[in-house]
Design a protein around this nucleic acid. Structure first.
Length: 392
RNA sequence: GGGUCGGUGGCAGAGCGGUCAAUUGCAUCAGACUGUAAAUCUGACGACUUACGUCUACGGCGGUUCAAAUCCGUCCCGGCCCA
């Protein structure tokens, strides 16, 4: 079953081989890093966010700049998230932040309090204006602990919205005279929480939509959270959902994840990943280090690689045994006098030039340089991990 | 020498009779983070104890009071003003 298919996809900004990881450049930048930093990590595609860029700097500026690539001066593949996640992270988590109706979502800007209405059509229009290479349907990702009824309602809404997105997509393609080569790829999103039957229903509904409208989805995303409330990876849900998705479509595990989660998802058929973890954890002083003793990835295809849950249910503590990597918190006092490299086998700017003691000092001093170097290191870790997966 | 204002936990700085082992910030020590409201957030932070709790603490000593970081006396130390 674990067929390691390496798909090659073509976008107007270049080709990509799966699997690949995209860091989140939500507002058009990866915090603390410039394009040269990104390039040196080996990372190529990135994710930008429709809602955040719509708010600031606003579409007038982006259009005037000639699209988000030109604005960022980043001319490699970019995927835009639709703003659907903000329905979850802003509104579902805090109803004061806006309102969801069947027709639209009213967001209250977290910064200004200003109200903005996003509809599926508007999200797609914005994404075309951004000029990205890959776009995502506007969806409604409910928290996994909602009742099954509520999650089912979100599934149906997500399907209805996907239809509106696809209609708008076709409209924009026509209006902008785009062809197969120049059009952005479009991804539907599968909701359904922790319910396999709802995930199945969602994929089926999305397939129906594509038949009805007469255009296949280029890919399907796994929506909402892929871990339960205890942080336990929803292995069976991810596996089942991947199996429901049409074989030739791309499978995008939105928001996945830890290195461990990515490595687990890939054999299930997931091709693309994005996550804030490498950069956010980096900014918070947590550095990923490859475990030399680990036999990964050579034993991965055989399915014998230890895929321990990050947290065990019984005691809530981390199980780091047999992991192929570990994480150090560089702010911990034990690194104050540690003059070794963060990872002596790493070729990133941090590990090649500085000691743990120095990075500890940078973090203790609160200087942005520490956060930059840590982000670079973690992205380098992810880039190398993806390369290994690509070579399986 | 006279006057005056002050001396509080690693630092800064609240409290000005009981609800004070003492607000808050910083520092320190841990932890969390999964389609980024995150350079954020949470917890611990006098000693001993798993905990209940006990002890020692608001410059020193001595008073007043059922009760003092808080009131009084005195001494020591510091800032400012006058000689």
């Amino acid at each position: 079953m674990n067929s390691f298919r390496h798909k090659k996809i073509n976008t107007k900004s270049g080709a990509l081989k799966t699997p690949f990881f995209m860091p989140d450049a939500t507002r058009g930048f990866v915090k603390f890093l410039n394009n040269d930093d990104i390039k040196k990590t080996g990372i190529v595609p990135m994710v930008v966010n429709t809602y955040h860029l719509f708010l600031h700097p606003g579409m007038e500026i982006i259009k005037k700049a000639g699209g988000v690539h030109k604005f960022m001066n980043y001319h490699k593949p970019l995927l835009s998230d639709s703003g659907g996640y903000q329905v979850f992270s802003l509104i579902h988590k805090n109803p004061k932040m806006g309102k969801i109706t069947d027709n639209e979502v009213i967001f209250r800007s977290p910064t200004s309090g200003e109200k903005h209405i996003i509809t599926p059509e508007k999200s797609i229009q914005i994404q075309f204006d951004l000029g990205v290479d890959m776009m995502v349907c506007f969806d409604d990702p409910p928290p996994n602990n909602y009742s099954k009824e509520k999650i089912s309602a979100a599934v149906e809404r997500t399907i209805r919205w996907a239809k509106r997105c696809l209609i708008e997509y076709n409209k924009q393609i026509k209006k902008r005279k785009l062809d197969e080569k120049s059009r952005p790829l479009i991804f539907a999103v599968v909701q359904g929480g922790e319910h396999v039957d709802l995930r199945k229903r969602c994929v089926d509904g999305l397939i129906e939509v594509s038949k009805e409208i007469g255009r296949d989805w280029d890919g399907y995303g796994f929506g909402a959270r892929h871990v339960d409330e205890n942080g336990i990876f929803l292995e069976e849900i991810l596996r089942a959902t991947a199996s429901f998705i049409p074989e030739k479509a791309l499978r995008f595990a939105l928001g996945v994840g830890t290195p461990e989660d990515i490595v687990r998802c890939y054999p299930m058929g997931w091709d693309m990943f994005d996550c804030v973890i490498p950069t956010r954890e980096g900014r918070h002083g947590r550095l990923f280090i490859r475990n030399e003793q680990s036999k990964f990835p050579t034993c991965l295809p055989a399915g014998r690689f230890p895929m321990t849950n990050t947290k065990s249910i019984s005691n809530g503590k981390k199980n780091t045994k047999n992991k192929f990597y570990k994480i150090i918190s560089i702010r911990n006092s034990k690194f104050k006098k540690d003059f070794s490299a963060v990872d002596k086998n790493c070729d990133c700017e941090l590990c090649q030039n500085h000691t743990r003691a120095y990075l500890n000092h940078l973090f203790k001093s609160g200087d942005p340089l520490g956060m930059r170097l840590a982000s670079i290191h973690n992205l380098r870790f992810y880039a190398k991990l993806m390369k290994e997966l690509q070579e399986l």
